[in-house]
Design a protein around this nucleic acid. Structure first.
Lengths: 202, 202, 202, 202
DNA sequence: TATGAATGAGTTTTCATTCAT
DNA sequence: AATGAATGAAAACTCATTCAT
């Protein structure tokens, strides 16, 4: 019992550090913050960060992989559904927007510090990031074969356009370039699919 | 005469440093490279970088502003043309793709180190970056008023989707996630407009 | 009974830690290894090392003193024997060589980390180390008085030469500079005495 | 001229740092001292140490190699002389003793921190250290062939005994275990050769 | 006795920037 | 304009030691 309690307490501290890191990374940026900022924010001793993580990098890696894997699962699950491709893309867009609504700081960190900071961390996680593109491309490919989508735009390209559009919208919210109220978030789910699938043309 | 010559020589040295910085930033990333790397790549002495630029940041600032202003001018010029919105967007996409073809390293630097590194440099240049979004949004807005584009997707949103799609495609080329051969570049110009304007739907 | 048993168990654990420390110090060096390396090697928890020893230093201290005292006793015992000085020196050389044969890792630790690391641990144990030199010097002194050894080389000097020669040979074995097979060990016992007592001259 | 002067000044600063390092290493030991101690002792800024040396290790490496190479040259030169082996060994012993007389701190550093700290630095410089042993062994080998030395003690072993004896004597001086006055130094040159060549036997 | 989480001081190294020449 | 030596603040990371359980 004592062991169970302390094991749980240990796991909690790890979580506390990860959550603090999200806030610090979001506020100051990964490169700009110090490990001591994370420890301070978490209310733990400096060295404890290194007890649970090999390096500052590993903290970000952990944060990214945790969330990205959830998203990959969500995409796979969506794709398994017997629904039109348009609805699949809508579900994916919804998932991403909801992720942002639920924890905008975490999404800011993942997008700004990993996905788009393609040099350092992007390179490390390129394979993982690419998985998402490929899953989306696969949805497009099947939709083209089924006659749902036009066949001339390559699936890879379409996937990048779709994902890029959403990510840019999140970036817009993150940096206050785009209004990010509750309604805007809802609207965005529709808009991105309308734009990519329906097109802007009248 | 001597003064004119040395002034020209000075300007050239400044250029040499900037061009070297592009290669170094593209190869190693802004945060990872040292000022001495730039000096070495340019074949000049360490301190000379500080003769022409106040700081390492200013080198990147200069690089970004030089190119971004050219793009803003190109967008404005395009918008001034009496052509359909679809063609305007095609011209913008073309300009960006051509910029990449002409100097992929510079575009990599601008996208990866500035546009997408929104925490550090993005913040500094947010206003400048936003200008581009607004010019594009304006094109969409006028097209909606003219009945060329559907009125339900907000112009701001559409601009972000359009720009995000292109930037993601460039990122795909930069990190070899998308094939970036000559034909692919040409195709991309059409695809992005087809996708955003025509939509993926059959 | 239970107390006796656990006291014995405790003593065993202490021994397990000491033996593990020998292997770790020999492999990685005292400065380079961490306390956790010792605990891991011993298969005990981190904190247990601190239950039995006040500090990392104390572990090495213990190891050194254990062995060094055995050697001092052996030298004293040898000196008490009614045998020629030459045989006494042979007995001492034998003892040291046998110590190496029996536990080369322990001897490596004592020589490399204590005896020769005179700045850090050597200083602490200098008095203890000096005892050995003095015992040997005493043997030489008496041999000179008895007419066994030439009187012109001072005993202190001779003791250092003798001890230095042996230690250097062990060092040679430890670092594979000298062949350290079974026969080489036997030979060394004779050679060192032949060299120091008989001299290299024909 | 200005360039020549500053180049000379630069070289001097490097020397100033090396000399300061000798004093600091001798006083506090390599592991115990901080790089800032070296900088302070040299009266230069912290970073300048890293301007001239890649790491703290490299400072010690430089110090060792500088001196060790001088000694190797001295041994080679001695060996080239047409003199008896006994005189060659005397010359080598003299050289080492004189090195100590001239700069005892440097010799302390080389012996205590490199030659005898065989784990870290010794390993690195083992090949270089071994060269000395081999040169001495070669002298012995030739003396045996010429009938100067008895043939039964292997040259490798004799070299180790000879070198070990000298080094132990220096160690004795360094740690005040052996009297190290001017006369003692002179005496030592003879004693070590008398002991190793003539033997202690009456 | 045994565990291993928690602490935080200490040190190396990096590198942007300055400045004397 | 050009050089590169000199400066020193800043930060990551290590690890011996403590302590609650």
């Amino acid at each position: 019992m004592a062991t169970a309690r302390s094991a749980a307490a240990a796991a909690e501290k790890r979580r506390v550090i990860l959550d603090a890191a999200v806030r610090v990374f979001a506020r100051q940026g990964f490169h700009t913050c110090r490990v001591s900022d994370i420890a301070d924010e978490a209310g733990v001793a400096y060295g404890l960060v290194y007890h649970y993580f090999r390096s500052k990098d590993e903290v970000l890696d952990t944060l990214f992989l945790e969330r990205w894997n959830v998203m990959l699962d969500a995409i796979r699950e969506t794709d398994a559904q017997p629904i039109p491709a348009r609805e699949k893309l809508h579900a994916i867009a919804s998932f991403i927007v909801e992720s942002y609504r639920h924890d905008p700081e975490l999404m800011k960190v993942i997008i700004v510090e990993v996905t788009r900071a393609a040099n350092s961390f992007g390179q490390t996680h390129l394979a993982k990031i690419r998985e998402a593109y490929e899953l989306i491309a696969e949805i497009v490919r099947k939709a083209q074969q089924a006659g749902e989508f036009r066949p001339d735009v390559t699936p890879d390209f379409a996937a990048m356009a779709f994902y890029g559009a959403i990510e840019q919208v999140l970036t817009g919210w993150i940096f206050d370039v785009l209004p990010g109220g509750e309604e805007d978030l809802e609207q965005a789910k529709r808009f991105v699919v309308e734009t990519i699938c329906g097109g802007l043309d009248q």
